[in-house]
Design a binder for these strands. Structure first.
Lengths: 157, 157
DNA sequence: GTTTTTTATTTGTATATACAACTATACTGT
DNA sequence: ACAGTATAGTTGTATATACAAATAAAAAAC
């Protein structure tokens, strides 16, 4: 389990002073882990990984229309994960269906099942609570500011 | 490859407006990926993963003293990774040594080799450049502010 | 001094990530 | 129509992550 309520130097038990630039990187990495750990606790009782959850949410967003592999991949946060094998796992749990697209036999149409929709609906309040859990440490202006700073920070040159 | 220079809604191609709380989570996740992708480019020519690099840096920080598995694990960002198998990979490349601690035969003493130190020294300038690459998008005050906001954000209650 | 508990690490299994190679289908140009 | 190329997805291999079980040594309890 990750530790919080500490500055990043304490967390990695660094005995030297870190540059602010290095601290941002460590803080982003560490915050990512803290968020992920807490989110996994919600999903764990349902044998869902956060990546599997993410795919289900993308499929629900399709509002009844199927999504092919390309569409799923481009909407995922971690673009390089292996969508085929993620869908395999969801299929085994009857949370999605997979069919060859009749118009283009290269494409695969993936759809969320009623069972998948029910699971997401059950999880919704817990997911929203999770989203607000950490951001309630900040006031509304700071929440907006943090988003802006992260977006400005990661611009490529 | 991850995409940048976009707001998080564009990146995940969301057709609905996201709450600012949800946006922070997505922004942290996504920024984590962008940083990691760029860092992997530096390490890739040397067949090092970022986790392997992290272990080497911890060992260099020991300044000649060996570190046992517990110490390494508690200083890593991702605490739950499997240290034994990470060290296995570093051993194969002669970047570390591993010996049973004479005082306590349960413990394992891991040390960085000269080859490991040389590799880190070679990588140092590129690593510093990487750290400054993104933070140069912000002014010095914003850099400090982003660190403060991330640390405040992730406090547990 | 032997049993019990704790500590330190390893091993096993499942999933995820990263990347390259491969297969199959569709499209393009001639 | 056919060759070449592009697109969509799958498979293979290596590494990493997550977690539980196993092993072994040290410390504590009695």
């Amino acid at each position: 389990m990750t530790t919080t309520n500490m500055r990043i130097e304490e967390i990695i038990k660094s005995n030297v002073t870190l540059s602010d630039s290095k601290k941002i990187i460590l803080n982003v990495m560490y915050t990512h882990n803290v968020i992920g750990d807490k989110f996994s606790e919600i999903l764990k009782p349902h044998d869902l990984s956060s990546e599997q959850y993410n795919v289900l949410r993308i499929l629900r967003g399709q509002k009844g229309f199927p999504a092919n592999m390309c569409v799923i991949q481009e909407r995922m946060i971690a673009k390089n994960s292996n969508t085929t094998r993620l869908i395999d796992k969801l299929l085994l749990k009857d949370l999605v269906t997979r069919e060859v697209c009749p118009d283009n036999r290269r494409k695969i149409e993936v759809q969320i099942t009623q069972k998948g929709l029910d699971l997401l609906k059950y999880l919704d309040p817990m997911v929203i609570e999770h989203e607000n859990y950490f951001s309630s440490n900040l006031n509304p202006d700071e929440v907006v500011l943090l988003n802006d700073l992260l977006e400005k920070y990661r611009q490529l040159k």
